[in-house]
Nucleic acid binder design. Structure first.
Length: 487
DNA sequence: CCCTCATTCGGGCACTCGAG
DNA sequence: CTCGAGTGCCCGAATGAGGG
C-alpha cells in the first residue's frame, strides 16, 4: 500500500527492528505455500475467475459507484480513501456474479434466487444459465469434491468404529462414567445390532447416523438451510418426527455432571432405552435457577466425546416439561424423547414438531406481566426472538407458538380454545390479553402506514411510553375507552 | 424509624363478541 | 341461548419516596 516500513513499525508499537526480526524475516513463504497444498513453484489459478461478466450486470450492483466516482473526480476530491473504497466495490462486482452463478448450478432451487430481485432479470438469468458452458473446458471441481467427501466419510467410519470398540470395553475403560449417555456399553451394543440387522424397530438415532455426514445431500445445502429458515416463520403444520409409540427417550442429567441418572434416579429404566448416536443427538440438562425452580435446557451442539462436557451457548433451547412431548400421560413422561440434529442443526421448528400437548408450554414460555417489561421493544423481542435467560439459554419466539397453537379453532376449523393457553384460567387470559394487546398495536401501526418497520413503531411507542413512564401505564393510555354499564 | 402519600401492578368483575 | 375468550375498569396490596 506504499506505507513506509518505519510507519508500519510505529503503528504496531514495534521498537527497533522487532518487526523485521520476529515477523517479516520469519515467514517461510515456500513452506506456507506447500502447507496450503501447492507444489513449490505451482501457479495458483482459479479458472472461473477468468470468466468475464457483462458490464450491464456489473452495474446492477452498487449502481451508485460510477456516479460517485465521477463526481469525486470532477470535484477534484483529494480523499483517496473514499475513492479507493468505491473502486473496491466496483472490482468486487464480478466476483459476486461468478459466485452466485456457481451456487445456481449446484442449488438451482435455493431461496436465494427467489429473494434477490436482481437475479430474476433476463440478463442475470442468461448469465447464470450460460455459466457451465462459460467455464474453461478443463475446469471441473467435482473430482476434488468427491475425493474430499470420500476421505471425510472414511474418517467418520473410523471414528464410529473406535466408538463401538471403546464402548464394548468393560467399565472403567469405556468412558461410561464420563459419557453422559445412559448405559453406554449395553445400549450401544444394542444400537449396533439394530443397525446391522436393519430391523423395523430400528431406533431413530441410527437412521439419523446413516443419513448424516458429508454424504447427506442436505449438508451445507443452502436450499435446505433456507427452507428451514422460512419454515420457522410459517404457520404450516408438519408431521411430527416422533411417533407416539417411539420409546427413544433419555433422562435429564444434571448440568455438567454427566451422571446417568434420570429425575427419579432410576438407572435401570434408563439403560433399557436405545442409545442416541453420539454424533448428532442432543442431550437435555437441568439448570437450577433457585431452590424451587429449575429449567431443562437442550444444548444445540452434541457433546464431543471423549470430553463429555456439552458446549453451552446463549442459544441453547429452554425446554417445556417432558409431559409436553407425550399424548398419553398415563405412561411415564419424566424423560424427553430423542432430539437429534439430523446433521442439519436443530431448530425451534424441529422441537415444536415433537410437541404433543401444547398446553404444557404455557408454564415455561408464558409472557410476563406488563410490569416486567421496561420497554415495548423488550416485549416485542419476546414475540419475535424469544426470551433470553442469562447464562441458561432462550425460549422460542412466542410468535411461533401462537401461529401453531394460538388459533381459537383447531385443525378441523372447530373449537374455541387456544391450544397452548390453559383453559378457563382467568390469570392466563389476562396476562395474554395484556401482552397480545401490544403485539396487535404494533402490527396495526405497521399496517396503518405502509412500509413502516417494526423498529420505527417500537421507537414511536417507546417515545409515547416515555411520557407515561412504563409499559403498564402506556397500556392504560392506549386502551380505547368504552362506556360501561354498571349493574 | 415511622408515618403519609403516590405509584405500580395483579387480579376481580362486568361486559362484548363469536362459536356452538 | 349458553359458554368461554378477550377486554376495560376498578380496587386493593405492595412498594417506594419524602418528611418529621
Amino acid at each position: 500500500m506504499g506505507v513506509p516500513p518505519d510507519q508500519v513499525d510505529a503503528a504496531g508499537n514495534w521498537q527497533g527492528n522487532t518487526r523485521q526480526e520476529v515477523y517479516t524475516s520469519k515467514l517461510p513463504k515456500l513452506a506456507i505455500t506447500t502447507l496450503a497444498g501447492f507444489h513449490v513453484g505451482e501457479k495458483y489459478e482459479v479458472p472461473w475467475a477468468e470468466v468475464s461478466v457483462p458490464d450491464e450486470l456489473n452495474r446492477m450492483i452498487f449502481p451508485f459507484a460510477e456516479d460517485a466516482l465521477a463526481e469525486l473526480t470532477a470535484a477534484g476530491c483529494k480523499n483517496r480513501g473514499m475513492y479507493n473504497f468505491l473502486q473496491l466495490l466496483v472490482n468486487l462486482r464480478p466476483f459476486f456474479w461468478r459466485g452466485i452463478s456457481a451456487i445456481c448450478v449446484e442449488y438451482p432451487n435455493s431461496c436465494l434466487f427467489k429473494r434477490l430481485r436482481i437475479l430474476s432479470t433476463t440478463d442475470a438469468k442468461g448469465f447464470m444459465d450460460s455459466w457451465p458452458s462459460a467455464l474453461p473446458s478443463n475446469f471441473n471441481e467435482a473430482p476434488t469434491r468427491e475425493a474430499m467427501q470420500l476421505l471425510t466419510a472414511r474418517m467418520r467410519g473410523v471414528e464410529q468404529g473406535i466408538d463401538v470398540l471403546i464402548n464394548s470395553l468393560p467399565y472403567p475403560y469405556n468412558f461410561g462414567n464420563l459419557y453422559p449417555y445412559p448405559s453406554p456399553a449395553s445400549s450401544n451394543a444394542q444400537a449396533g445390532q439394530s443397525e446391522a440387522s436393519g430391523s423395523a424397530s430400528e431406533p431413530l438415532h441410527s437412521t439419523h447416523t446413516a443419513s448424516s455426514g458429508v454424504n447427506s445431500p442436505s449438508v451445507g445445502n443452502p436450499d435446505v438451510e433456507m427452507q428451514d429458515l422460512s419454515n420457522e416463520t410459517s404457520a404450516s403444520e408438519s408431521t411430527p418426527q416422533m411417533s407416539t409409540g417411539n420409546n427413544s427417550t433419555y433422562p435429564i442429567p444434571k448440568d455438567s455432571t454427566g451422571l446417568n441418572v434420570n429425575s427419579n434416579g432410576d438407572l435401570a429404566a434408563v439403560s433399557s432405552s436405545p442409545l442416541p448416536s453420539p454424533t448428532n443427538s442432543l442431550l437435555p440438562y437441568n439448570v437450577p435457577i433457585s431452590e424451587y425452580i429449575s429449567l431443562n435446557v437442550l444444548p444445540l451442539l452434541p457433546p464431543s466425546p471423549p470430553n463429555h462436557d456439552s458446549v453451552h451457548t446463549p442459544l441453547d433451547m429452554i425446554l417445556p416439561p417432558p409431559s409436553a412431548f407425550y399424548d398419553d400421560l398415563s405412561k411415564k413422561c419424566d424423560s424427553y424423547p430423542l432430539f437429534s440434529t439430523c446433521g442439519q442443526g436443530f431448530t425451534w421448528k424441529d422441537l415444536l414438531d415433537q410437541v404433543k400437548r401444547p398446553v404444557e408450554l404455557w408454564s415455561v414460555y408464558k409472557p410476563k406481566g406488563l410490569g416486567d417489561y421496561s420497554t415495548v421493544e423488550m416485549l416485542w423481542k419476546v414475540w419475535e426472538e424469544g426470551v433470553y435467560v442469562d447464562g441458561v439459554g432462550r425460549c422460542p419466539p412466542l410468535r411461533m407458538i401462537e401461529e401453531r397453537w394460538g388459533s381459537l379453532k383447531n385443525k378441523d376449523g372447530q373449537g374455541r380454545h387456544a391450544q397452548w393457553r390453559p383453559k378457563s384460567d382467568a390469570k392466563a387470559r389476562k396476562i395474554w390479553s395484556n401482552f397480545h394487546f401490544f403485539i396487535k398495536e404494533i402490527e396495526k401501526r405497521r399496517n396503518d402506514v405502509a412500509g413502516t418497520s417494526a423498529n420505527e413503531v417500537l421507537r414511536e411507542l417507546d417515545v409515547l411510553r416515555g411520557a407515561h413512564g412504563n409499559v403498564n401505564k402506556l397500556h392504560q393510555s392506549l386502551q380505547v375507552k368504552k362506556p360501561r354499564n354498571r349493574k
